[in-house]
Write a protein that binds this DNA or RNA. Sequence first.
DNA 1: CCGTTCACTGATCACTGATAGCTAATCTAT
DNA 2: ATAGATTAGCTATCAGTGATCAGTGAACGG
Lengths: 216, 216
Amino acid sequence: MNGLGRVVQRSSAASEPEHVDRRRRRREAKRAKIVAEAWGLARRDGLAAISLRDLADRVDLQQPSLYAYFDSKLALYDAMFVDGYRQLLAILARHTFSDDPREALVEFVELIVRFSTEDVVRHQLLFQRTIPGYKPSPEGREVTRALLAVGTERMVAIGVTDYDTPVIFTAMVAGFAHQQVFNDPGGDRWLRQVRPAMEMFLAEVDRRTKPRKAKR
Amino acid sequence: MNGLGRVVQRSSAASEPEHVDRRRRRREAKRAKIVAEAWGLARRDGLAAISLRDLADRVDLQQPSLYAYFDSKLALYDAMFVDGYRQLLAILARHTFSDDPREALVEFVELIVRFSTEDVVRHQLLFQRTIPGYKPSPEGREVTRALLAVGTERMVAIGVTDYDTPVIFTAMVAGFAHQQVFNDPGGDRWLRQVRPAMEMFLAEVDRRTKPRKAKR
DNA sequence: CCGTTCACTGATCACTGATAGCTAATCTAT
DNA sequence: ATAGATTAGCTATCAGTGATCAGTGAACGG
């Protein structure tokens, strides 16, 4: 090691001295803390009722300091949006799906419905366009695309290759999640019907994929 | 007619002189005007972004005067809620459904999906819990109950009598409306799949209502 | 040790929904 | 016709909101 160890470090990753990295890490951690507290506030007061002053209090800052972490309130919502989708994607990635693709499909839908009921405001932000000026950022669009990919994977697994069938499928998933969240918050009235509904859907898929007599 | 015509009128409807009625009518008309302008503002700026000052300008009032017509902003949202459901109920009442109850079911769902896409913010207010403190008033709950009654009627018409099948049905209606509104605002990607989806649903209903061999 | 960047603050702005107190105009009853 | 009451609207003001700006002190770099 020569006289200035960190100079060597820096040369390895062009203009990235270690303490700068540490600072960035601290900053990222605080950003995450803010987002986490924002979820808490949203659950308490409603998604659209988050107050930046309340939020600042919770993370030991003054209100204007939040603007060092987020360009605007909408940017905060966007961070929450991305965070929420990452939570769902993590759950899906963690889950070990059944080998039977039909069973796996049921599990997939049930996971999404359960995820939605776990946190109403999260469901609102992720699946409904409720905040007036908000449009997902490129990063936001990427996580939604990632979820779509997981869904497409499940469609392919049951042999769906056409364009129309997934349209019906997504409507059903959205509908069950929505109804469970808003019409039976604490219960499982719609969740319990996911399986029979998916069996109905799979019967339809069978009818479509093999038009006439074929055993499988 | 005697000397004081309106005195006679008054006696006819116990403590309701005609000019009082006229005042009430004027007041009711202004209330309706306010609600109508509020819809316009909501469509322009977003449902949660309605400003009472903007709204007051549109109906030639000062902002505090709105409180003579609505106790609070939430009360305004409630009036819009009731108004929106009445619009939908009117459409359903006006429509002459097919004699074939299965065809009528398709029409029913398509009407609702079309209604939703006609006005995104109306769909938001009616079918999603998006305004933080808002809970429908008794009047609001009544119009939702009225819509439920129409749906139940359609279920009965196709021979559904159990408890679970309508749960699936409502999820599908909600899902198609939601997806059409938010994932294909101008188009008809989900609307076009309502019919095949309903045929799938009706096949399932057949399976459930006549378990084994029966022709019909 | 000097200069720069970072993290944060206090003051302030325009705007929001809501309330209080007032003023005409309109209607009621004598 | 006129005193009293009700209605419909106003101005002024409140606390709270998101956003902006100039400034401060500490940490870091050469």
